[in-house]
C-alpha cells in the first residue's frame, strides 16, 4: 500500500457512534417486537409494555438531547478550527507576498 493509500485508510478509519447507541437500537427492536405481539397480549401486559416504553423514551429523550448538543458542539468546533486554519494560512500567505515584494530585484 502506498503512503497515500495509508493516509486514506487513516482518514477513513471506523468511528464509534454515541455511547448509548446499542441501548437505543435494542429499545427500538423491543418496541418493534412489542407492537407485533400486541394483538395477543392481555390488557395489563400492554400497559406494562407501554409504561416501559414511556420510561425508555423519556430517558432516551434526555440522552438524545445531550447527544444532539454534543453532535452540534463538535460540528461547530470543527468549523471553527477550519476557519482558523484558513484565516491563519491566508495571513501567512499575505505576509510571504509582502516579504517577496520587498526583496530587491536582482
Amino acid at each position: 500500500m502506498t503512503p497515500f493509500e495509508k493516509q486514506l485508510q487513516q482518514a477513513l478509519r471506523r468511528q464509534e457512534p454515541s455511547a448509548d447507541f446499542s441501548a437505543r437500537v435494542l429499545a427500538r427492536c423491543a418496541a418493534d417486537d412489542a407492537s407485533k405481539r400486541s394483538v395477543f397480549w392481555p390488557a395489563w401486559g400492554m400497559g406494562l409494555a407501554t409504561a416501559a416504553l414511556v420510561l425508555l423514551t423519556i430517558g432516551g429523550g434526555a440522552l438524545y438531547q445531550q447527544h444532539q448538543r454534543e453532535v452540534r458542539g463538535m460540528a461547530a468546533k470543527r468549523q471553527l478550527l477550519l476557519a482558523m486554519h484558513i484565516a491563519g494560512s491566508k495571513l501567512q500567505q499575505v505576509q510571504e507576498r509582502v516579504q517577496e515584494s520587498e526583496q530587491p530585484s536582482q
Binding site: 461547530a76 468546533k77 468549523q79 477550519l82 476557519a83
Partner: peptide, 15 residues
C-alpha cells in the same frame, strides 16, 4: 463557514 456568537460559544465549550 458561518459561526455566529452563540455557535462560537458552543464550539468554545468543546475546545
Amino acid at each position: 463557514v458561518t459561526l455566529d456568537q452563540s455557535t462560537l460559544a458552543l464550539a468554545s465549550a468543546f475546545l
